[in-house]
């Protein structure tokens, strides 16, 4: 895939502005801090842009298409991360430890690109699941293989698909490694 220079420059400028704004917010706009932060803003922006264009399928846009669906995803995520924290807290204090851990393959239906990364990041903060993307597959470590983690993952995947306007009909059909029982 060839990357056009204007696209690269646009992406780099967006990131420079965003990271500079973040640094400015975090340091209350102090001048001394700006001097210290500048190299990090620059290197973060360059690294982020290079990663964005390196071997990625640019099918899905990075920017959410539906604000309402995004709000629903955030609500869903906040509620489940609260549940996730409570769940692991209760497990940590029990004796004996209530664990039936397992490492399973989740048949991801989202198309390649930024959405599986978002999915993996959110999955790790949901109750009892920890995600790893390995060789294009989403592998999930579950604390209790008998819990209803599979339903939660499916709902999360649907909500991410909704945010990015990804039609259920266009989803990848990869049922060949669905050993999730």
């Amino acid at each position: 895939m060839t990357v056009t220079l204007p696209a690269f420059v646009t992406a780099l400028t967006q990131r420079l502005l965003l990271f500079a704004l973040l640094w400015w917010l975090l340091t209350d706009g102090q001048h001394e801090a700006a001097l210290f932060g500048a190299p990090f803003v620059l290197s973060a922006a360059v690294l982020s842009t290079v990663t964005r264009f390196r071997g990625q399928v640019l099918s899905a846009s990075l920017w959410p298409a539906r604000p309402l669906a995004l709000m629903r995803l955030i609500g869903f995520f906040l509620w489940h991360s609260l549940r996730g924290g409570l769940d692991v807290t209760l497990r940590a204090f029990r004796r004996p430890l209530p664990l039936k851990p397992d490492l399973i393959d989740y048949p991801l239906r989202l198309p390649p690109g930024p959405t599986p990364i978002l999915m993996a990041s959110l999955v790790s903060l949901m109750p009892g699941t920890l995600a790893v993307i390995c060789e294009g597959r989403l592998r999930v470590h579950v604390l209790d293989r008998h819990s209803d983690w599979y339903r939660d993952l499916e709902r999360l995947e649907q909500r991410i698909g909704d945010v990015y306007h990804i039609d259920r009909a266009q989803w990848n059909d990869v049922p060949n490694h669905s050993d999730h029982n």
């Binding site: 924290g85 692991v88 807290t89 940590a92 430890l97 664990l99 470590h141 604390l143």
Partner: peptide, 18 residues
């Protein structure tokens, strides 16, 4: 307390985030 690397990561990420 948790026995393996993955389970420990569960505890760290979720509980500390909350």
């Amino acid at each position: 307390r948790l026995p393996d690397l993955y389970s420990r990561l569960h505890a760290l990420t979720k509980a500390d985030n909350l």
